[in-house]
Structure formats: structure tokens, C-alpha cells
Design a protein around this nucleic acid. Structure first.
Lengths: 195, 195
DNA sequence: CATCTAACTGAACATCTGTTCATTTGAAAA
DNA sequence: TTTTCAAATGAACAGATGTTCAGTTAGATG
């Protein structure tokens, strides 16, 4: 039997990506076999090759699509006013955008070493582009006299690390509601760089 | 041929652990085969089973030994005086202790999902024990009136995340010497929690 | 209705996987 | 020198791996 009812490319394609994100985030790319992934989708392994040329490209596409989305979404969320407001927006965006995409965040951070060199370079470029947004905000803040720090580039990395670590421990059903955790992180970030 | 010249358990054992840390950090535990590891050590795959009962236990032992070392070493480095001095010592220790052990840090951080449940629980307990050291310092600082933050537990995680992110980008040959980067991080941490 | 073709199956491919174990080796102890 | 045995080898196991492809199916098209 082939092509079950309602099973088209438009349905199976997204299913493949979702299942891949879920499984790779949980088990790691190397530990997930194409047969496992196929079973999760509900097809045979061979059918996956209608949706990706190979396993490596599947990983790369997942990471690239995620990062491109992150950057585009932030550029829309960026108020582009004073540095303080922009930094506040960045912290809020980073937490709120990534939270419902925890699998993609996990994959994009943890699977870098499984990318072939040219794919790695492309992903690093995108990651750097996102970091550069934050760095630009910090530098604007320095210019405005609102922020003071020893080194904007290192501060950028420190803040990104701090915000990203968030996803390794936050659980919806935990002690604190999201609004509160967001406020706590904003407090820490703001104090760290404020003049 | 067996037992090459100068090849004893005391030599091969450490070699296995070093090679395992190096390979797992670079490629991921799931992606490293016992034959690859054996080749790196310079023995056949079967010989590895003189040093570990199985691949899973090898991973667990590497992570546990690392974390036990971290905790013991910090307890020695902790001045146990005022919170400000202790926090300064924590930041310095975290950066300086982990830097020459980048492979172990990477493995202990990235391979959690490849641990079987009971092993995972044991490692999480150790990680938590380390984080608790920092939390205790922050709470002492609050009690002394030296620090002020909205939530000590969240601040603990934020600071750990910030400091650990350091190892994902710092390179010995980079723009800034270690002393300077350490000072920058201290500045950020200190401002984030200072009253 | 018959036809077309995107989407899928299932078998096959060579190679790799973790682990076991009877066997061999050679440095140190007697 | 002979004995001993820790520390290796290398073959074998059953099953998994990514990927290919000729063949099958069923929904859309004419």
C-alpha cells in the first residue's frame, strides 16, 4: 500500500521535519537512524529520501531554517528606538521566541559538531548574524551613555550564553511563571550592562 | 602480538580516558565507535573492555569523574569569607579550572541525553551540587546586604549559563588574554547581582 | 471511465555496530 | 631460566546503518 488517505507531500514533509527535530533534540542526530525517523513519521525509510537528499542535509536544513527564522523574527520585533528599549525587546524576544521552539534551539546548539565543514560555516555565519544584532544594541547603548561595559563583544557572548542557558532548565510547570522569569533575566542583563 | 613494550594497564587506562574525552567532545558519544576509540589508543576494540564494562559506563565514568573533580577542586579554592570574595573566587575558578578541561566540560554538558536514566540522575545530582555552591554564595551575599537580586536560584542558573557559554567561543589565540576576559566576566557578574 | 504520476513500499547493498572469548604474547617474579 | 598471568589479539556474533531502486498504489486529471 502506498499513499495512504490524506498523505501528501504537503503533509508528510512537515511531519518529517517535526519528527526529526523532536528525535534529534531528544537523542542526538548521530543516534537517530533514518528507520527510527521514518517510523515516527509513519512511513518506510526509503520514503524520507523524497524530502531530503541525505541525513546530513536534513540536519543542516533544520538548523538553517531555524536560524533564518530567528533573525527575521527578531528584525520584526526590534523597536529600533533607544538602546534600553531595544535591549529589553531582545531579552523578551529571545526568551519568548525560543521557548516554544526548544527542540530547534537544542538541535541548533548541540549538533554543530555533526555538520560537515561547509555546512558548519554557513550555520556559524547565521549565528554570528544574530549575535551581531545584540552587539549593535550594546554599542548603541554605549554611544548613548546608557550602558557601560568593558567589552561589548564579550558582553554579547555572555548575555547570549546566559539567555540560552535558560532553556536547559526552564519547565512550564516549574516554580515561576514565564513573566516572572523573564523579569528576573531582564533585571540581571540590565544591571550587568547599565551605566 | 600482545602487550607492546611499555604498554601496561597504568598507561593504557589513562590513554583510553583521554582519547575518549577527545573523540566524544569532537564527534559526540553516539558517533564514536569502540573501534575508532581503540584505534586512537592504539589497540584493538576488544582490549577496551579491560577498562570499561561497556560503552555507556565509559561515558558515565568520564562525566562523573569530571564533576566530582570540579566540586572537590572548588571546595578547596573557596575562600569561605565574605560573599563578594567568594563570588569572585567562583568566577575565577570556574573559568580557570574548566579552560584546560574543555573536552570534559563539553562531554559533561552535551552528552546528558545519552545517559541511561539512573546514570542521568546521578550526574544531575552532581551538577546540582556544584550549582548549589554558587546559590549559597548568592544567598550569603543577600544576607550580608552586598547583593540584591529578584531570585537567587534563577540568578544562579543565569550566571552558570553565562560562564559556561564562555567555553563555546574562547580561543587561546583570540583577541583578548585570559586575564582580561576573566575581568570582563567578573565585571558583568558583579554588576548583575551587586546591591 | 481510464490514465497518469506523486508518493510510497520493501528488499537489497556493503559496511559498520557493541560485545564476547579462546588464544597469544611478553615482561616481571621465582 | 622457567613460570606466571595481565594485557593484548583477532575472529566471530547478530543485528543496525544510510542509501538505492524497481515495483506498487491510490488520488487527481482528462
Amino acid at each position: 500500500m502506498a499513499r495512504k488517505q490524506g498523505s501528501h507531500s504537503d503533509i508528510t514533509g512537515p511531519k518529517v521535519r517535526e519528527a526529526a527535530l523532536r528525535l534529534i533534540a531528544r537523542c542526538g542526530w548521530a543516534a537517530v537512524s533514518m528507520r527510527q525517523l521514518a517510523a515516527e513519521v509513519g512511513v518506510q525509510a526509503g520514503a524520507l529520501y523524497n524530502y531530503t537528499p541525505d541525513k546530513q542535509t536534513l540536519l543542516f536544513d533544520l538548523m538553517r531554517d531555524h536560524l533564518v527564522d530567528v533573525i527575521e523574527s527578531f528584525d520584526k520585533a526590534d523597536p529600533k528606538t533607544d538602546a534600553q528599549s531595544r535591549l529589553r525587546a531582545f531579552v523578551s524576544f529571545h526568551i519568548r521566541y525560543h521557548l516554544p521552539r526548544a527542540d530547534a534551539v537544542f538541535v541548533a546548539y548541540m549538533e554543530l559538531r555533526n555538520l560537515e565543514p561547509e555546512n558548519f560555516a554557513a550555520i556559524e555565519k547565521l549565528r554570528r548574524a544574530y549575535e551581531d544584532r545584540l552587539e549593535a544594541i550594546l554599542r548603541q547603548g554605549e554611544a548613548e551613555g546608557a550602558f557601560a561595559m568593558k567589552d561589548a563583544r564579550v558582553a554579547t557572548r555572555a548575555i547570549i550564553g546566559m539567555l540560552t542557558g535558560f532553556f536547559t532548565w526552564y519547565r512550564q510547570e516549574g516554580r515561576l511563571p514565564l513573566e516572572e522569569v523573564e523579569a528576573i533575566y531582564w533585571d540581571l542583563v540590565c544591571n550587568a550592562v547599565a551605566r
